[in-house]
Simulated assay, not measured.
Amino acid sequence: MSNHAVFYLISDDMPVVSHTNGIYIRDTKGRRRIDTNSGAITCNIERDHPTVNAA
């Protein structure tokens, strides 16, 4: 793994999600990570949009 601050953007060894549980994401190598991205994405989804509500 690279020491670069944005290693996940330049790494050839990208993690592959195996499963999730709450705030945790497990990759196929068994490493557990905290999901730190979904909150920002959720805040950017238009509130009460018909397409979002239908999903």
Rank of each mutant, 00 (worst) to 15 (best):
24 Y>T: 08
6 V>F: 13
54 A>S: 12
31 R>T: 12
43 C>W: 03
30 G>T: 13
4 H>Q: 02
23 I>H: 01
18 S>W: 00
24 Y>K: 12
12 D>Y: 06
27 D>H: 03
41 I>N: 03
51 T>Q: 13
16 V>D: 06
18 S>D: 03
39 G>L: 10
1 M>Y: 05
1 M>V: 07
22 G>L: 04
24 Y>R: 09
54 A>E: 13
27 D>E: 08
47 R>G: 03
54 A>L: 07
35 D>R: 14
44 N>Q: 09
52 V>N: 14
37 N>M: 12
7 F>L: 06
2 S>E: 01
49 H>I: 09
34 I>C: 07
54 A>W: 05
47 R>T: 05
35 D>V: 13
35 D>G: 11
49 H>N: 15
40 A>V: 12
22 G>K: 08
28 T>V: 11
14 M>G: 06
10 I>W: 11
11 S>T: 15
36 T>L: 07
15 P>F: 05
9 L>G: 08
4 H>I: 02
18 S>N: 06
13 D>F: 14
30 G>Q: 14
12 D>R: 15
12 D>A: 15
30 G>W: 09
13 D>S: 15
1 M>C: 07
25 I>T: 12
46 E>A: 07
37 N>F: 09
14 M>Q: 06
36 T>W: 02
40 A>P: 00
54 A>I: 06
8 Y>W: 13
37 N>P: 00
